[in-house]
Design a protein around this nucleic acid. Sequence first.
DNA 1: CTGAAAGCGCTAACAA
DNA 2: TTGTTAGCGCTTTCAG
Lengths: 335, 335
Amino acid sequence: MAVLLKQLAAASGYSINTVSRALRDKDDVSPETKKKIRALAAELGYVNNSVAKSLRTGKTNTIGVISADSSNPFFAEVIMGIENAARASGYHILLTNTEESTEREREAISVLLGKQVDGLLLMPVLQQHNNGHYIKSLDVPYIIVGRWLPGLEDHSVMSDEYEKAKEVVLYFLKNGHTDILHLAGPSCVSSSVDRLRGYRDAYAEAHMPIQEELIIETKGHLEDGYHEVSALIRNERKISAIFAFNDLVAVGALRALKESGLKVPKEVEVIGFDDLNFSKYLHLSLSSVSIPKKTLGTLAFKTLLDHIENPEAPYTKKTVASRIVFRETTLEQEP
Amino acid sequence: MAVLLKQLAAASGYSINTVSRALRDKDDVSPETKKKIRALAAELGYVNNSVAKSLRTGKTNTIGVISADSSNPFFAEVIMGIENAARASGYHILLTNTEESTEREREAISVLLGKQVDGLLLMPVLQQHNNGHYIKSLDVPYIIVGRWLPGLEDHSVMSDEYEKAKEVVLYFLKNGHTDILHLAGPSCVSSSVDRLRGYRDAYAEAHMPIQEELIIETKGHLEDGYHEVSALIRNERKISAIFAFNDLVAVGALRALKESGLKVPKEVEVIGFDDLNFSKYLHLSLSSVSIPKKTLGTLAFKTLLDHIENPEAPYTKKTVASRIVFRETTLEQEP
DNA sequence: CTGAAAGCGCTAACAA
DNA sequence: TTGTTAGCGCTTTCAG
């Protein structure tokens, strides 16, 4: 069974305390003693029991990560950024999925608190009955990653989505498009709200009338883009540009366009959002708004760590800049 | 601060013990007492401290998941399967990445053991100096997911990769291809070894000579497929079929083929491996070997759970069947 | 049905 | 420099 301090103490002749201090490299233990104890620990394969340590110290060196859907490559990439940064700082992550369910989210927070995580990284659901109030009352430091919650904006680490969404649609409008389809994301996700707002404000700024039927809410999955665009084409609804909530939806849309024989970008221009790894390798490489996902994850963790180490510090909203990458699904193309 | 059993005891007039037993629904506490205590706990927002509980019970209800690279969509999907199954059984996952490094792997195992995980799910690196010996000596139950380690085959939950790889190449050979490029994965990953073995054995079975220069080792990333195939074409090396280690590499290859003007599948047939979510939505939907990733994750967790609950049970290798999906990058196509 | 006492393995005060 | 003692918050005997 597991080797304990007690065993090391018995085997070395020192007290449990001295062994503990030696292993933690405290400087009131003589070098020789340390050496002896260290050697013994290595020989017997001693592994510090972090559960006991955590109970005693009140620190777990673990943070909870509550993701909405980690099978979505976007989150997967963000989470990898988080994990990397966390590991580099001696932290571990306890990962949970909510699948955009408010109840699961609440449950997840509660369980993770029970596990005494030192902090929380959240990608929360935004809804009528969201957990904003509950989250606001948390004792542990927490950061909202890539999203926001009303009244908690200062806890967010995210990218400039509204601005970029607007820019995308403005680009379309300037190119003379009037029928710009917006394949929006779920309204319970703050990024959908921002991207949609960008769409509306771009129209407003260009003094163009919005055609509400060209705003279609999806769940943000591949199939959604495919089905919605297929349906539109079947109904002979004219569209000349598509601004998709994310790359997944855009890829689905691309597929539908191809099947119907519509030429991209000549007849229909398409811009996605997120710039997933594979998007530039598509047969028709996808124009998209590139969010630095790994950076987002890293920054989120680092910010959280700051607050763990310095609990009194006030929170401030942090933003990482994204940029529009023009590839083969738009007429304008980068060199 | 956090509400403790002590507070509930003081506030309710019962002893700490009774409160604890009431909350855990033990049947030697009277129903009314339970009700009172429960109400109080809910009111004060009591959350059980799992660290203390774990120290006392020796159970953490947490498993460690050591992934090679969770930004790879394949792992992301498997991990999601694991997380789902785990949550359904009241377990949480502590996620770590090794980026295919043996040292990080060893370190990760050790730290997770220190955190007293109830079991381990590994996607280990296979190398000269691998951690097989170390892993073999573990006290906690562990399962190797989607891979194998020599001597530990019984601990694996994986798919029938060798068979399917062979089948793929046999399909190519039967169609008259002689120059089949194999974009292999890293040799330190067991699935690469299996898929390559399938390639070789198919040639042997067809009594065809292998052209060693058509076996190219890659790291399994998108860019690799792109660069290797581009280089081959630049050197005017003739190839008429590509069997890629995974879909990522295949997509990169597809891109290179497109740039060079080679028609898929007429001039070059391509089959990938893994069948990632997006593969069927590519402009040219990718033929691939479909591994049921979520099932793999679920089965891995369930198997691990069996061993956690029943430590004496012997391990046996488990396999989930994959299947070849013929889409638009092959001449043969499913309806 | 309920309570008192012990102890999980560790670290932090305090003594020596 | 080292050892003794207490205690983190909980569950588990064992009494009552």
